[in-house]
Each structure stands twice: as structure tokens, then as C-alpha cells.
């Protein structure tokens, strides 16, 4: 099931925003070079918010232990021990709105 998350304009280039859609765990929505990315707002390592981190050179940087996740692949760099890759939800930027498929959980790209 695909659900509406927010207005597309709510996600400026280079920023990450946190949303709490009803019935789902909090998610993060980021925009890099125009493209949208939706992923759990929870780092795979220590459950910290990724929306409190930032984007840098096409990667999500976790603000707590500075693990970096590639936006295209989810591959982790500079990980604390045991930190897996990041997974993403399918999403669409359509008619000025952000939509994502949250059921079934994120998929490893």
C-alpha cells in the first residue's frame, strides 16, 4: 500500500526531515540532487535518529557515531562495529507530493 507522506516542497535539497506516519515507525525523507529517498529514521546500529544527522557527498551521516550510508545503495562506510547497511522504502515524487510504500518494511537496494 502506498501512502502520502508530505508535500514535496517540504523536503529541500540537501536536507533530511522526520515523519511519523500513523501505524508505522518514524521515517526519514531526504533529497539529494533533486531525488527523494525514504528510509527508517533509525540507524541500523544504535536506533538513533538519522534525521538528526545530515547529508554529505551523497551519503547520510549518522550524527551519533558518524557512520555514512550511500544514498544509492545503502552501503555503510566508517561503521561502528556491527553496523549493517541502510535499507530504503520505495517512494515516488508525484504531483507535488511524496508517496512511499511502508508496508512490508524497507528493502535493501
Amino acid at each position: 500500500m502506498i501512502i502520502e507522506i508530505c508535500d514535496s516542497a517540504a523536503i529541500p535539497e540537501g536536507e533530511i526531515r522526520r515523519f511519523e506516519p500513523e501505524g508505522f515507525a518514524p521515517i526519514a525523507v531526504a533529497r539529494h540532487e533533486g531525488r527523494l529517498y525514504v528510509f527508517p529514521d533509525r540507524c541500523p546500529h544504535a536506533d538513533e535518529s538519522l534525521a538528526e544527522g545530515w547529508l554529505e557527498d551523497g551519503r547520510v551521516v549518522c550524527g551519533v557515531h558518524f557512520a555514512e550510508f550511500e544514498l544509492d545503495t545503502g552501503k555503510v562506510h566508517n561503521p561502528p562495529v556491527g553496523c549493517p547497511n541502510l535499507s530504503f522504502f520505495r517512494c515516488e515524487d508525484r504531483d507535488g507530493k511524496v508517496f512511499a510504500t511502508l508496508t512490508g518494511g524497507p528493502e535493501y537496494v
Partner: peptide, 24 residues
């Protein structure tokens, strides 16, 4: 990006605030 203690992984922002700790 911040300062992480080598002992238990407590992590501080450049504003000095505690951002998080190691693990769950």
C-alpha cells in the same frame, strides 16, 4: 562532526550536547 568518547561510545555534538551512546 562531533567528539566520541573512546570508552563507552558516548557521542557529543560540536555544541557539546550528548547525541547518543553506543548500542541500544
Amino acid at each position: 562532526r562531533g567528539f566520541i568518547c573512546n570508552y563507552h561510545g558516548w557521542s557529543f555534538g560540536i555544541d557539546g550536547g550528548l547525541r547518543g551512546t553506543d548500542g541500544k
